[in-house]
Computed example of a mutant assay.
Amino acid sequence: MRFKRGVAVAAIALTSVLSVVGCAKDSGSSDNPSGGDSNAAGCKTVDKPAAASGETTSSTSGATVDGSALKIGIAFDIGGRGDASFNDSAAAGLDKAISDIGVKKENTKELAATDQESEDSKLTRLRQLATEGRNPIVSVGFAYTDATVKIAGEFPNTQFAVVDGFAENAPKNITWLGFAEQEGSFLVGVIAALKSKSCTIGFVGGVNVPLIQKFQAGFEQGVKTVAPDAKIVSKYITEAGDLTGFADPPKGQVAAKGLIDQGADVVYHAAGASGKGVFAAAKDANVMAIGVDSDQYNQKTVADYKDVIITSMLKRVDVAVFDYISAVATNNLAGLPPVFDLKVDGVGYSTSGGKIDDETKGWVEAYKQQIVEGKIKVETTPSS
């Protein structure tokens, strides 16, 4: 194992957070670049931070890599390729390996999880890929952790990776691909605070587990750093143990509508394919939405809602999957970063659609640099 980081899946019940009353400010102030009309209210913000300086580093080395001999297996989470979010980001990493380092498409195989499947289903899926000689095998999602540990023990000569997973005392042929989701979520929280006119901002989580709470925690901190008096309301679609919260757009729509009814005019989701419902609710109410994982403004499966998507928190699963495949091809797994964070562009934010003006970007980049330099520590658990 390369590092220790826990992704427990025990349920931690949460209620809606931070019922502090929002505070309107004069629309003429230059502190709020929300771009609304001259009569629009907005969140009272702190002073704009100093401009960013310095650069982040890339997680890739740029070395020549030949992946033509690899036979890759991908076990997707619920929703599979086409979820316009988490799985699609992983798929993009595989596609990049095909286009950039010579992996042969015919030597790859993709299998996807189903709603409410048993642990035996995960074991069967991974065992099938290993028995067919797939190497490496990438498990997409923390739900595969236990199954991957078991199958990796049965196939010690096969390399495995788990996106978002971690287990103590696991076989050494498993690589854990972890992210600083809270850091990217902080950045889109900054954007939400600057764009909101009602000063009420919403968060929809797919499943109430510590991993998704990292998104919520960073988002809350970003909002509150910029607009301390903002009101944040949140809702989880399902509790721990019920992973359908990542694949139920109608329930995502209901959850988002509930937050919008409480006054939220910007809603951020970390809910996988259920995010399509969040976007639908935002469009129906003519409010703003923030996507997750992939640049959802450019995702064809949510194209009907792109006009309300102001940004997405980029969780670069594509980068991690591509870098992992490249590392296997070069036999250099030790060269992977211990966590894909802002320093290695493992998380970030999108600017597609032209809704992030230069003023807003200046705020975000300044806070990004402070996080990279360690001046701001982003929390991994919600404040309440």
Rank of each mutant, 00 (worst) to 15 (best):
K96W: 06
A97E: 03
S99Y: 03
D100I: 00
G102W: 02
G102D: 00
G102K: 02
G102R: 02
V103W: 02
K104Y: 02
K105D: 12
K105P: 04
K105F: 05
E106T: 12
N107V: 09
T108E: 10
K109H: 14
K109P: 13
E110N: 07
L111D: 11
L111W: 10
L111M: 13
A112H: 07
A113L: 13
A113D: 09
T114N: 13
D115Y: 05
E117C: 04
S118D: 11
E119S: 15
E119K: 13
E119D: 15
D120Y: 09
D120E: 15
S121F: 03
S121Y: 02
K122P: 09
L123W: 04
R125Y: 07
R125E: 11
L126E: 11
L126Q: 12
L126C: 15
R127K: 15
R127V: 08
Q128E: 12
Q128R: 11
Q128V: 01
Q128D: 12
L129S: 10
L129N: 05
E132N: 07
R134T: 00
R134F: 08
N135L: 11
N135Q: 03
P136E: 00
P136A: 04
P136H: 05
V138C: 04
V138F: 06
S139T: 05
V140A: 07
G141C: 06
G141E: 10
G141S: 12
G141K: 06
A143M: 11
A143G: 09
Y144K: 05
Y144A: 04
Y144D: 10
T145A: 00
T145F: 04
T145I: 05
D146A: 13
A147Y: 06
A147I: 00
T148V: 11
T148Y: 06
V149Y: 15
V149N: 08
K150F: 04
I151K: 10
I151G: 15
A152F: 08
A152Y: 14
E154P: 12
F155Q: 04
F155R: 04
T158P: 11
T158G: 11
T158A: 11
Q159S: 11
F160K: 07
A161Y: 04
V162C: 13
V163R: 02
V163K: 02
A167C: 08
A167M: 10
A170Q: 10
P171D: 00
P171T: 01
P171A: 00
P171F: 01
K172V: 08
N173T: 10
N173A: 01
T175C: 13
T175G: 07
L177W: 04
G178I: 04
F179R: 02
A180E: 10
E181V: 07
Q182E: 15
Q182F: 03
Q182Y: 07
E183H: 03
E183S: 10
E183Y: 09
